[in-house]
Structure formats: C-alpha cells, structure tokens
Design a protein around this nucleic acid. Structure first.
Lengths: 195, 195
DNA sequence: ATCATTTTTGACATAGGTGTCAAAGTTAGT
DNA sequence: ACTAACTTTGACACCTATGTCAAAAATGAT
C-alpha cells in the first residue's frame, strides 16, 4: 500500500465503542469521535463512509472480542457457578468505570436498530451468538445432570435478562441491585447440585 | 383564563407519547411533534418550554395511566395467573401496532436518563412504582401460600425482566419469542398451586 | 529519487433543529 | 362592546452536524 493510514484503526474502534457506550448512538457525532480519537473528521469520513459504517465496524470489532470472552467465562465444571461467574463479570463491566458508561449493545439496540438495517442485522447476530453460547453451555449442563430445564428457551430467557440488567444500570447505576437481580434469577432456575 | 389554549392537551400528550415511542427521544424533534399533533411548533414552545419539559409532561401523563392499568391486571386470585396475565398484556401492548412501536419508558431510559436529571427522576419513580405494585402482589401471594420466594427481590427481578423483554422486542419484534421468555421466567419462579 | 496512490487537512456548502420574538388572532370577564 | 391576557403564527437568527472536495502531505514500490 502506498499512502498508508496514519491512525491505529484498532485503537480508533476501541475509542469509538467507548464513546458510543457513553453518549449513545444518536448523540455521538463524527466530531465527538474525531475529538476523542484524535483523528480528523475528514480522515474518518475517508476511512469509513459515515457514522453508520463506522459504528458497524466498531460493533463487529467489539462483538468478536465480547463473545469469545463470554464463552471463556462459562468454562467451569459447575453450571450454576459458570452462569453466576458470567453474570458477575457482565455486571462488573457495566459498572466498572467511575464515569457512567452503560451497555454498548443494549444502547445500540434501543437507538439504532430501526434506523439502519445493517446495524439491525449485526445486533441480531450478536444476540443470536449470545443465545447459542448460553444454550450450548446449558445443554452440557443437562448432560451433566446439572440442569433440568429447556436449554433453548432458557438461553433466550437469559439473553433477555442480561438486557434487562443493562437497562436497570441506566436508571439506578447500582451494582448491588444488579447483583441481586441476577442472583434471584439464577436461584429460581432449575440448576441441580451433583453430589 | 382569557386567551384559552386551542389544542387538546391530553390529545397532544398522547400523540407525543406515540411519537417518542416510535422514534425515540433524541430522534424526535419539535417539528415531528408539531406535524403529528397538528399544533404549531411555536405553540408547543409556548405551552411547554422545550422538548425535555414536553417529554416530562407526557411521561407523567403516561405513567399514571400505565401504573393503574398494571395494578388492575394483577387483581386475580391466583398469583401465577395474575402475573401471567400482566406479562401477556405487556407483550401485547408492545406488539399491538402494525407499525413497529417499542416501549416508551425503556427507550427513554436508554436515551434520555443521563441527559436530563428531571427525566431521570421520573423514570426512576416509574420503575419504583412498578416494583412496589409487583412487590405488594407478591406479598399477598406469600400470605395466600401461592409464592415462596422473597417479594422484594423478586419484584426487582421482574422489573428487570420486563425491561429485557422490551429490548428483545426491538431486535426480533416477535411476539412468540417474547411470550416464550416470560413463560420460562414464570415457570421458574416459586409459585405454588393452592389445592 | 521519482512516481503513483492514498491519506490528511481545512474549507465549504447544505441541511435541519432550536429557541425567540413581534404581530395578529382569540376569548373570558367586565 | 371593550379590554386585558393569553395563544397562535410565521419569520428570524443561530447553532450544530453532515458530507464533499481540492490541495497538501506522506510513503511503498519501482
């Protein structure tokens, strides 16, 4: 390649995710992204055509990392512990920063899903991915006699629950409340101790 | 009063709720509201100072009606049936229109809660109200030996679940999926049949 | 070292939304 | 019927964001 790109694309996408997380999709402008990444607005328009495409790229970047992470969190022999661990880190991620942040994907769903078919598709794929990962782990748990519910419907239910927790974060921004919610949910689910 | 307001304020607020539901808070402009209500933009600025205040008024109008409605849905002797009924109508409301709509409050939470303290307060109050209504019904169920969980934490959990279902609506817009989710959740909850 | 190709940069025109205001219109109360 | 008080209306100035473009700068390949 000849006129090589100056900016670190990975870094820009990471920052973009952060900005989108904090401000939401609509409230984030190309100027915001330019300022926070240190890349000129024109360069962003050159590299990506517009905000939608930039978002699309940033989101793909994010989901790949996130789904891998989720999957790794579920690698634990005890199924209930595995899901507890997963939800615990999800909550911790949501509340990690001093400054209020929020869930990237949930904010995007509520704002951008209808506006742009491409974004809608990648959001759907993301939730589908989450669901599959959870379903697989639940099927394993059923085989291990650690769970007696239906894997498919329980996975869908858990996906919805995580979205709900992300909404609760916006209102109360209270880790204890979010923890209480997922603990209640997991307590009610038909996990079994194997003796 | 002398120069009386021409437009029907109740009607305007109802329409405003509808527009905010469909477009979301940020994407809704005063022009949109003027067009859809048939009231001139200037009149809206005269009656309410700005979009935030208008939203605030519309939201108060909405929550009063909604919470009363929720409470009435829970008036059933069988606790599990009562909550099933509630979630069923919530889902039906979310999917009722031919054109995609979405949950007014959840959209507002994800978009506007951080932007405006007033709105944040009324959103918090709304969720608190929901929680109290559900908690009261669960306490009744416990007295009736129809529920063996903790009323407070279960109510918070259910509030989160309804928010999650509203997010799922945005992505899949699929009534069957939403129904499956709340049925799974209620199935897992420790409701008891009284014989 | 030069060239071809891409990126960077700043400027520009455009579009859309906000909030304000003065003038015109309306109406309850006297 | 008149008036005082309010609403309606359309115009206005302002701001912010978008997307485009031409010129300048940068650099891998020859």
């Amino acid at each position: 390649m000849v006129g090589t790109r100056k900016f670190n694309e990975e870094k820009v996408l990471d920052i973009a995710i952060d900005v989108f997380s904090r401000k939401g999709f609509n409230a984030t402008t190309m100027l915001d992204l330019a300022k926070e990444t240190g890349v000129q607005r024109g360069s962003l328009y050159n590299a990506y055509q517009n905000k939608n495409v930039l978002f699309f790229k940033a989101f793909s970047h994010y989901t790949d990392k996130f789904l891998t992470f989720i999957e790794s969190e579920l690698q634990q022999s005890d199924a209930k512990k595995a899901f507890t661990q997963l939800l615990k880190t999800v909550v911790e991620r949501l509340c990690s920063d001093k400054e209020v942040k929020g869930c990237f994907s949930t904010r995007a769903i509520m704002e951008a899903a209808q506006q742009c078919p491409d974004i809608h598709v990648c959001l759907t794929r993301f939730l589908d991915g989450l669901e599959v990962i959870m379903k697989n782990r639940l099927e394993q748990a059923i085989k291990d006699k650690q769970f007696v519910g239906d894997a498919q419907s329980s996975a869908r239910y858990l996906v919805a629950l995580t979205r709900g927790i992300a909404v609760i974060e916006r209102v109360y921004n209270d880790k204890a409340r979010m923890t209480e919610i997922y603990q209640t949910a997991l307590e009610y689910m038909p996990f079994k101790k194997v003796s």
